[in-house]
C-alpha cells in the first residue's frame, strides 16, 4: 500500500489480486446479495484508492481492508429498512440449531454429495448471527487471528473468540451427519 501511495500501480494490482476474492466473498456472505456485495466491494476499493496518500501503517493491510469493509457493512445495515435490520447481538440467534438440523432432514437426497454438503454449510452459515458469521468468515476467508478479528470488528479479543467459538459450535452441530 505504501508503494502504491508513492505511485506504484503494480503494487495495487498485487494487493487487489490477493484480496479481491476473500473480500468479495466476505461481503457476499454478510449481505447475502450479489448486487449489494458488488457495490460495497467497489466502494471499499475506492476508499482504499482514495486513501493511498494518507495511508499510515498501523496494522496489516488485511486488517485495514477488512476494517473498512466492516464499517461499510455497518453503514449498509443502517441504511436498510428497519424491518430488514440484522441484529449484531450475539444473543439474538435468529435460527436455532435444531431448526437448521431439522431442515436438513427435510432436504431431498441430492445427486452430488459435495454440493449438498457445501450448500448445507452455506445454509448453516447464513443462519448464524451476523457477528458470529463475520468472525467465521474473517477467519476462514482472510485467515485472520482472533486478535485481528477483534481489531476489525472493534471488539475485545474475548468477544471475538467467543463469537468464533459459538459459530463453530453451531456449524459442527448443524453439519453432524454430513461430514
Amino acid at each position: 500500500m505504501l508503494a502504491y501511495g508513492e505511485g506504484d500501480v503494480a503494487a495495487f494490482d498485487e494487493l487487489y489480486r490477493r484480496h479481491k476474492g476473500p473480500l468479495y466473498r466476505f461481503l457476499l456472505r454478510q449481505c447475502r446479495d450479489g448486487a449489494i456485495a458488488e457495490e460495497l466491494f467497489q466502494d471499499i476499493w475506492t476508499n482504499v484508492i482514495r486513501a493511498r496518500r494518507n495511508y499510515a501503517v498501523a496494522a496489516r493491510f488485511t486488517t485495514y481492508l477488512y476494517h473498512l469493509a466492516h464499517n461499510r457493512l455497518i453503514d449498509h445495515y443502517r441504511r436498510r429498512a428497519p424491518a430488514a435490520l440484522v441484529s449484531y447481538d450475539d444473543e439474538e440467534a435468529s435460527t436455532s440449531i435444531e431448526e437448521i438440523a431439522g431442515s436438513a432432514h427435510e432436504r431431498p437426497e441430492a445427486a452430488y454429495e459435495a454440493r449438498q454438503k457445501a450448500a448445507r454449510l452455506l445454509e448453516l452459515l447464513q443462519a448464524l448471527p451476523t457477528a458470529q458469521r463475520e468472525a467465521f468468515v474473517l477467519q476462514h476467508e482472510a485467515g485472520m487471528s482472533i486478535e485481528d478479528i477483534a481489531v476489525v470488528t472493534g471488539v475485545t479479543r474475548e468477544t471475538a473468540k467467543s463469537r468464533l467459538r459459538y459459530a463453530m459450535a453451531k456449524l459442527r452441530e448443524g453439519m453432524q451427519g454430513w461430514l
Partner: peptide
C-alpha cells in the same frame, strides 16, 4: 473443524465480476 474449513473453501469460490475488476483497476 478441519472438515468444515475444507468444505467452506470448496463451497465458496465466488469472485468479483470482471467489469468490477477493470473499473477498480482503471480507477486506481
Amino acid at each position: 473443524d478441519a472438515r468444515i474449513a475444507a468444505l467452506y473453501r470448496h463451497a465458496t469460490g465466488e469472485m468479483p465480476p470482471e467489469r468490477l475488476d477493470s473499473a477498480i483497476r482503471k480507477h486506481a
